[in-house]
Amino acid sequence: MSKIIIVEDDPSVREELALLLENEGYQVTAVTDFSGVPDQIQAAAPDLILLDLGLPGRDGMSVCAGVRKLSRTPVIFVTSRDSASDELRALSLGGDDYITKPYNIPVLLARIKAVLRRAGGPAEPDTLTAKGLTLHLARGTASAAGGTAELTRNELKILAYLMSCAGQIVSRADLIDALWDSQIYIDDNTLSVNMTRLRAKLEGIGLPGFIKTRRGMGYQL
């Protein structure tokens, strides 16, 4: 599980980012005391830093410069400052990416994954398990006591997302966003078709009702 630290002074933005990233399976820390930020980052030992520019007392540029004296931890600037000069300076100081607010959530998540991948972050697991089901990501199969089912790419992605959020209600919109983030085009009707086929395959290996519909809210394992 990759560890991400958020350095953002706006509480609403900070909380939104933290919730978003936690729902994506990241371990999240947020800085709330903006004195000695580089030292706090070093103590947290994150895999990635999300850094705002407009911080109290010390701007994000100087924080990035301070971080670079201590480590090569990837830094993504997330800021409302959209000038080319700010972006150029941020990248020249050692930033790995520069994203302006308001950000597009799927794009933000995709760029976080890309930076972590380039940095050689922790490898994603090859299998997921939940409630008696094992999902083999590399093989594209789902196994339970009743046997094994082969899944299409869409079915695999849908089931992986639901299993990573086991016990939580996942909205249809979140599922569509998650698959779009994986560069798989899917709309509401396509999701319904894939969900029907996936449920049939799970029933075929002894797991009827594995994916529950929560009316008006989404799906839940």
Rank of each mutant, 00 (worst) to 15 (best):
T129W: 03
T148D: 08
S80A: 15
Y103V: 08
D177E: 13
G95F: 01
A123W: 05
L162I: 15
L179C: 00
D86Q: 09
L116S: 11
R111T: 12
A166G: 00
Y98M: 04
D86N: 13
L91E: 04
G146P: 12
S83L: 00
L88Y: 08
T152H: 05
N154D: 07
R117D: 11
I105C: 02
Q168T: 09
Y161V: 01
R111F: 13
K131F: 11
T127W: 09
T100C: 15
A173P: 00
L116C: 12
K101L: 13
E150R: 14
G95I: 00
L137F: 03
A160F: 03
A123V: 14
R89I: 03
L128A: 03
R117T: 13
C165P: 00
P122G: 03
T148G: 10
E150M: 09
A166R: 07
A166Y: 10
D126K: 14
S171Q: 02
Y161W: 04
E155C: 08
K131P: 00
E150C: 06
A90Y: 06
D82H: 10
N154Q: 07
G147E: 08
S80W: 00
G147R: 10
G147I: 09
Q183T: 01
L91D: 04
G146R: 11
L91S: 05
G146A: 12
D97F: 02
Q183E: 10
A84V: 07
A142D: 07
S92Y: 01
N154Y: 01
A166H: 11
R172C: 05
I158W: 02
Y103L: 10
A114T: 14
S92G: 06
C165W: 01
L156C: 05
E150I: 07
L91C: 06
I112K: 09
